[in-house]
Amino acid sequence: MYTTEREIRQLKDLIDDKLRQTVLIEYIERPVIDEYKLFFLDYLFKTTSLAQRTKEKLLVSVMLVQIALDIHEDIPNDEDIEVFGVNQQLSILAGDYYSGLYYYLLAEIEEHDFITVLASAIKHINELKMKLYFHKNHTLLDNVEIIKQIHSLLIHYVADFVKVTTEVPVIEEFLFLTLLLNRPINPLNQEEMQHLLDIQIQKTKGMIDGLPEENNVFKNALSHLFETTLYQNTAWEKD
């Protein structure tokens, strides 16, 4: 049940298709599609007996939510930007548009329970974002834990929806590892970042190795992804 490079590409095309809104394309940067989240979502939906078309729509909806949240997360406070211009204004509206679009896609296929799942996840994520923003009484460790949760919470809610539980902790750690590899965490310096990354690599590897044997397909896929993520640029198995 490996997700191949071709499958990831196809899924990205499906999402890209939904992201295209003429005015937005002109003004805002092309949203980033997190391929790791795509991989895990594809894995989670593959465990279900849902029709392929339904799986695709559910997956695209989750990614639209993720993109909407990411776009809104990048809206700066006034003191952090010289001019709050048309690009920022349209980014806000782009996030709102993608939020409307996920609801539209799911309403179209009458997946009302999944709308509730995603809305609840968004609500929870924004509670956590507020907690992180007003972090005065938190330790660094607390904050790292919140960041980790925010980063994987959507996947967590989807996993609950498809009733996959065993794999969730390792997915959460793996996603946090990919986050650390790609983005510095404030206010950590380079040395502290490297230390955190080293711990995270060990932790993630240990969790992959600890996956039960009956889950061999996922375990092998994840080991492969782990190796390629750390040591190569190509994360996905070639066709």
């Binding site: 996030g95 009458e110 995603l118 809305a119 968004i122 974002k129 507020m130």
Partner: peptide
């Protein structure tokens, strides 16, 4: 600030959709 306004707007919209899905009329 803008950040809190973005979080609040997203939170309220999520509450709106969570609430409306109590109804099962497609």
């Amino acid at each position: 600030g803008n950040k809190v306004a973005m979080y609040t707007g997203d939170y309220i919209l999520a509450r709106a959709l969570e609430n409306i899905t109590q109804l099962h009329n497609p």
